[in-house]
């Protein structure tokens, strides 16, 4: 009897012993960078560089942890208590949402150069090899039989840039107005067979699952998709017009004040603007702000006509009109079923 009991208790102890509580504390600081989908590879490369730089400045090392997902969703996680020291999101609007709840001081976009957006990107098309549907420009997206893949603007930052680029293209056409833009975007979403919650999900849907004729993608995500998944399977089409996407970064004041990590968090973001980092940014297919780095990648990034978010009245207004509950997107998307 006793023997059996010991076996049972022993096996329980074994289970417990197999999992020592947490790893031993590492020296130096820990940062949590809450980011959006397509930056996974960029920050994976950047974090060790920053660690080296931080050590070079005479500090103990820094371990940076990453969380990725749809930009809107990530912002809400931070609002919900995800203890991010820094947020590096797809658009300023999402950081505004966090600031609105008091976690980040207002005016955050003035704290770093270039509206706190250390790199930019734009929205391009990713099509099947040889571009069988002949997609060159925005109006081609709503041609008969064309299926468009984009994530959900409610949860994805990239999708909001997609949406605005489409809207902006319709506006700039002769006779363009809010009404024609709305009609165009409505029609565009009728051509969308799958709506993932993040940019990465959409890329997988398009490239890996073979769904759709064209993916509306971040330029960097498109390059990455070609490189990682589909050399000879997909190719990039740059439309004549698109939008200047400015992924913004900010220190989360409430968290860093609680943790006492403000200095390292601030340095983490500032170092993004340093020239070597800017080259790294270019290597990961983001458009660098630094002119020297930008010149190095000049051939990689074609020039095209770009609107900025200011042309649309800024994120606050855009969010309210288009993406909030009961906004334009809800109105045009809900009835377009089947």
């Amino acid at each position: 009897m006793l023997g059996r009991r010991e076996v049972l208790l022993g096996s329980g102890a074994l289970v417990l012993a197999g999992c020592s509580p947490q790893q031993e504390p590492e020296p130096g600081a820990r940062l949590l960078n809450v980011s959006y989908d397509p930056t996974r590879e960029l920050y994976q490369a950047y974090n060790p560089r920053f660690d080296a730089e931080w050590r070079r400045q005479g500090h103990p090392g820094v371990t940076v942890e990453q969380s990725h997902g749809g930009s809107g969703r990530q912002a809400r996680s931070v609002i919900d208590g995800l203890a991010a020291d820094v947020v590096t999101l797809a658009l300023a609007g999402d950081i505004d949402q966090i600031a609105k709840r008091g976690l980040i001081a207002t005016g955050w976009e003035k704290r770093l150069p270039f509206n706190s957006a250390p790199y930019t990107s734009t929205i391009v098309f990713l099509v099947r090899q040889g571009n069988p549907k002949g997609i060159r420009d925005w109006p081609d997206l709503i041609k008969e039989g064309v299926q468009v893949i984009t994530p959900n603007p409610k949860t994805s930052g990239g999708a909001r840039w997609n949406y605005l680029a489409a809207w902006g293209d319709a506006l700039r056409r002769p006779g363009g107005s809010a009404a024609t833009a709305r009609a165009f975007v409505t029609e565009l979403f009728r051509h969308v067979p799958v709506l993932d919650t993040g940019a990465r999900g959409s890329t997988t849907t398009f490239v890996q699952r073979g769904i759709g004729d064209v993916l509306l993608a971040w330029e960097n995500e498109a390059f990455l998709a070609v490189e990682e998944l589909g050399p000879g399977k997909v190719e990039i089409v740059v439309p004549p017009y698109s939008i200047l996407a400015e992924p913004s970064v900010a220190v989360v004041d409430r968290v860093v004040d609680q943790k006492g990590s403000r200095a390292v968090a601030q340095a983490y973001l500032e170092f993004l603007y340093a020239e070597p980092s800017q080259v790294l940014v270019g290597e990961h297919y983001y458009r660098p702000r630094n002119p020297v780095a930008a010149a190095r990648f000049a051939t990689r990034f074609p020039t095209l006509e770009l609107s900025t978010i200011a042309d649309f009245g800024g994120w606050q207004q855009v969010q309210q009109i288009h993406f909030d509950d009961g906004g334009v997107f809800d109105a045009i998307y809900q009835p377009s079923r089947r």
């Binding site: 809400r76 409610k154 999900g201 769904i211 079923r337």
Partner: peptide, 23 residues
């Protein structure tokens, strides 16, 4: 599922989406 609203989106996913929209 493909998670296509109105077509292949399941109710538990919609719960998560509502949560992600802070609702």
């Amino acid at each position: 599922a493909g998670n296509m609203p109105l077509r292949s989106e399941i109710a538990p996913l919609l719960i998560i989406i509502q949560l992600e929209q802070f609702n």
